[in-house]
Simulated scan of single mutants.
Amino acid sequence: MKLPVSNWLAPLGLAFLLAACQPAGSEQPQVHLTGSTMGTYYSVKVVGTDETRAHELQAEIDRRLELVNDQMSTYREDSELSRFNRHADDSPFPVSADTARVVTAALQQGRLTGGVLDVTVGPLVNLWGFGPDARPTRIPSEQQLAEVRTRTGLQHLRVLVDDKGEYLQKSVPGLYVDLSAIAKGFGVDVVSEYLAEEGLTNHLVEIGGEVRVSGLNARGQQWRIAVEKPGPGTGSVQQVVGLDNNSIATSGDYRNYYELDGKQLSHTIDPATGHPIDNRLASVTVIHPSCMIADALATALQVMGTERALAFAEEHRLAIYLLTKTDEGFRVDMSSAFEKYLRG
């Protein structure tokens, strides 16, 4: 479905602006917890509890998110993933069950998307200056790209499990795994699942724009996520999405980029070319029960481009919302599965 619009959405700026606009009525108690993680922020709304539990909940949320960073951050030299990336041979490298779970999901989504989602493009991400390494002073040469690409490819990464634990294994030296396309969504799932374990089934969890909701809000209504228009100052509502027991994640090319040699470079790398993507798809929003999967798919669909992403979504019955640049502005496209989530 294609809709012409004069203003485009910024789903990366997912906000909860509508909460104050909903009809007044009987409300359950709610706490709002905020903090920092994964180089961004988190925001957690928990319905059915009060400030007496806030400190306990936040301490455990912080502990669990810190553990995810210790497992999967490429910015921490002593994380499990960083140590695996430095691992020089093909012997199995022991990791936690969580790291194995996320890498397994990444490999599954990589196969599903025909290799478009590839968590082994880390060396290319670093070469283009979007990882822990410094940005290049010039566009990498084709020779540099060819050399780096010999160290990438999902076929070189395996997850092994036996009665002693879980392991990662690489079949080429220098294989470097970057889970930034999936780990933030996993962190959201971790927090949501913890709250559910505590019997707090009505909640909203956000990490840097990736969101998962469970149950109902404090007014006993469906969670309504307001998607903002971009621009300076406070954002205004462009589109409302109604969710319950679902997640929403966005990938976009308009926030994490820089210019080099007169060319604007996106942070998203196309595994097929080794270059940053250069299509007119500005952003992709995906709704899925798992925030980890929504996060991964949003990145993959961003690489595919508009027409291919829409076809893929229809084939796999995915709920996606796209913003594509045109000469007249931005065009909204959505899959048929997304339409039922629109509110107002």
Rank of each mutant, 00 (worst) to 15 (best):
172 V>D: 15
175 L>V: 14
175 L>F: 09
176 Y>I: 10
177 V>D: 04
178 D>F: 05
179 L>Y: 01
180 S>L: 10
181 A>V: 06
182 I>K: 08
182 I>G: 09
183 A>H: 07
184 K>L: 07
186 F>D: 09
187 G>F: 09
187 G>K: 03
189 D>R: 02
190 V>S: 02
190 V>F: 04
191 V>Q: 03
191 V>A: 03
192 S>T: 04
193 E>H: 14
193 E>F: 03
193 E>R: 14
194 Y>D: 03
197 E>F: 12
197 E>R: 10
198 E>W: 05
200 L>Y: 05
201 T>V: 15
205 V>D: 01
206 E>M: 07
206 E>F: 07
207 I>D: 00
209 G>V: 03
210 E>A: 03
211 V>K: 08
211 V>Q: 12
212 R>S: 04
213 V>E: 10
216 L>K: 09
216 L>V: 11
218 A>N: 08
218 A>G: 01
220 G>N: 00
222 Q>A: 15
223 W>E: 10
224 R>K: 01
226 A>W: 01
227 V>E: 07
227 V>P: 01
230 P>N: 09
230 P>D: 04
230 P>R: 02
234 T>S: 13
234 T>Q: 15
235 G>D: 10
235 G>T: 10
235 G>Q: 09
236 S>R: 10
236 S>Y: 01
236 S>K: 03
237 V>K: 05
239 Q>N: 08
239 Q>R: 15
241 V>F: 11
242 G>E: 15
242 G>S: 10
242 G>C: 13
243 L>A: 11
244 D>W: 13
244 D>R: 14
246 N>Q: 14
249 A>T: 05
249 A>C: 15
250 T>V: 09
251 S>L: 14
251 S>Q: 08
253 D>S: 14
253 D>F: 04
254 Y>G: 10
255 R>S: 12
256 N>L: 09
257 Y>P: 07
258 Y>W: 08
258 Y>A: 01
262 G>N: 11
262 G>V: 03
264 Q>P: 10
264 Q>M: 09
265 L>V: 05
266 S>H: 04
267 H>D: 00
267 H>W: 02
270 D>E: 15
271 P>Y: 15
271 P>I: 12
272 A>T: 10
272 A>V: 06
273 T>A: 01
275 H>L: 10
275 H>Q: 01
275 H>P: 02
275 H>W: 06
276 P>T: 06
276 P>H: 07
276 P>L: 14
277 I>T: 07
279 N>L: 04
279 N>Y: 08
279 N>K: 13
279 N>D: 07
279 N>I: 09
281 L>K: 01
281 L>H: 01
282 A>P: 00
282 A>S: 08
282 A>N: 05
283 S>H: 05
286 V>L: 02
287 I>S: 12
288 H>S: 06
289 P>S: 11
289 P>M: 04
290 S>K: 05
291 C>H: 03
291 C>F: 02
291 C>N: 07
293 I>N: 12
296 A>T: 08
297 L>T: 06
298 A>K: 08
299 T>Y: 11
300 A>V: 03
301 L>C: 11
301 L>Y: 02
302 Q>M: 07
302 Q>H: 09
304 M>T: 05
304 M>F: 09
307 E>T: 11
